[in-house]
Design a protein around this nucleic acid. Sequence first.
DNA 1: AACATAAATGCGAATAATTCGCAATTGGGT
DNA 2: ACCCAATTGCGAATTATTCGCATTTATGTT
Lengths: 124, 124
Amino acid sequence: MEKAIEKLIRSGRKLTRPRLAILKFLSHQHAPISAQTIHDKTGIDLASVYRTLKLSEELRLANVEAMGNEKRYCLAAEPHHHITCRKCGHSETVRCNHVTEGLGNFTDISHQLTITGICDKCRK
Amino acid sequence: MEKAIEKLIRSGRKLTRPRLAILKFLSHQHAPISAQTIHDKTGIDLASVYRTLKLSEELRLANVEAMGNEKRYCLAAEPHHHITCRKCGHSETVRCNHVTEGLGNFTDISHQLTITGICDKCRK
DNA sequence: AACATAAATGCGAATAATTCGCAATTGGGT
DNA sequence: ACCCAATTGCGAATTATTCGCATTTATGTT
Ligand SMILES: [Mn+2]
Ligand SMILES: [Mn+2]
Ligand SMILES: [Zn+2]
Ligand SMILES: [Zn+2]
């Protein structure tokens, strides 16, 4: 999280109370989380949450993934992904097998990977 | 596309004119395409397009990826992904490096990968 | 420490994407 | 040809996300 704050400041943006609260909250999660949830748990205005998340994505402080129709974010630590149970939502970390190799024609690559399945507790 | 139709029928659903038109349209695309675009080009009601796309995803006739806030679909051929230029939208196929290996605790896995970058024509 | 000011916030209203409800239609049997 | 559950089209409703703007705040400068 320190790294994220540093990047934020180096980008010339202000380190505001809402931004700090959101980054701090994210740093305590182990599974990717939605804007709505961040709003619910921190009380920060939903529009501001969205603004901070979008900025965090641009500055690569956080990574996004698509769950159904909503986006979920987690702090960008070492490259990793998640697999999430479609029944109970339980989420585990997955090593990032360099999905973006051999893409020579393209630069400034960013990727977003969503993996779902049924976890052992949920299969009968 | 024949394979998709076969799966659709085997699932016990009707092979309707709209469904056939959508699958046919998808089979002619080389880049993933949105519900809105399918509606625009085929004239099929937007709600029906959404219904068919959701069904296609469930039956794994088609694969989804997230582009910004919209979903884009392409027929599920051999496992593959796409890299799309964030400037011009140009899209190329990417081999699927089995991103879903070693996920032992989970079954019935499905994944969705969105890769963007800047293509050679767009970088100055 | 008080000031200046551009950047960011909060709030409500606006969009964009997707889904729902239901009456009318139709595909696939019999 | 007839039946009937499945599907469609259309409009209205939901959801997720974004925008506009008056007010507040972080940060550099006296
Ligand atoms: Mn994570
Ligand atoms: Mn494709
Ligand atoms: Zn589960
Ligand atoms: Zn391009």
